[in-house]
Design a protein around this nucleic acid. Structure first.
Lengths: 143, 143
DNA sequence: TTACCTGCAAATAGTTTGCAACCCT
DNA sequence: AGGGTTGCAAACTATTTGCAGGTAA
């Protein structure tokens, strides 16, 4: 049932965390879900495999993964907390009508951004990362 | 005390909202604060001018302004809800070390993004807006 | 006048914490 | 064996709601 057992185990080891069934299940879900779940969604999903996991543990586990950089923490404009497994560099598309979030990977765009910010310095700061929020609407069939 | 009385009044009128002291005070604060306050910060600040305002009203007022597009709603990665008065197009810089948020306006960058997304269509979607999240660190004096 | 708006207090939702028991290594 | 990890319940914080009374237009 755990899809990426060895991979997950080494992620945990690199982070210096003990391998527990709860962590395996949470991380397995985060890797395979291909979405941006909130704490409760993770909890619900993981419950099916580890029925006696508690929500407090899900909170703690997700938070510690985010600390270690295994997941990234984000939140929607209306304040809902979400976690995102980071496999490759990507931006986010927010559907302004229904709140859906999708990943948006675009290497060419990243190149353009890199190039721009190589010369465009911000006084007093070092740029660590640049991410786009792309607000979208579903296209209407008849335009 | 209210800095932009006529401007605010017309904003409210355009939005079809009644002009109340609470709304005037909240919007005045949002326009003049030049920051990205959370609900409680708005409440504290407004209390000094309208001592009997209730926090529920601040919630309601901010939310309705956001609905009308007078303010934009955002939240930090750790889930803190913030509101932002929209005067000119800008992006946001997030200081990853201390959580500070600053505006970042850059017309040249906007041109580049516009140009790119003029030809870069996303299947099934219409792009409404594109915003950057720039993660930064304060520059260390000795590098 | 009247529909909208506000304040209050209670309800709800979301998140964190302390601690005893548990279990990886 | 021992310290990190978990589950529980309680505490806490943030946000929403219903409603009675107030007020802008």
């Amino acid at each position: 049932m755990i899809q990426h057992y060895q991979h997950i185990k080494s992620l945990l080891q690199e982070a210096g965390m003990k391998t527990t069934p709860q962590r395996l299940a949470v991380l397995d879900y985060m890797i395979s879900c291909k979405c941006h779940p909130c704490v409760d969604e993770v909890y619900q999903a993981v419950c099916e495999h580890v029925p006696d996991i508690s929500k407090a543990t899900v909170y703690k586990v997700l938070e510690s993964f985010a600390q270690e950089g295994i997941l990234s923490k984000m939140s929607t404009n209306d304040g809902k907390l979400k976690y995102d497994y980071i496999d490759e560099r990507h931006h986010h598309m927010f559907d302004v009508e229904n709140g859906e979030i999708k990943d948006f990977a675009d290497h060419e765009l990243d190149e353009i951004l890199n190039k721009y910010f190589r010369s465009r310095k911000i006084d007093g700061y070092v740029i660590e990362d640049v991410k786009l929020e792309i607000k979208v609407k579903k296209q209407n069939k008849n335009n």
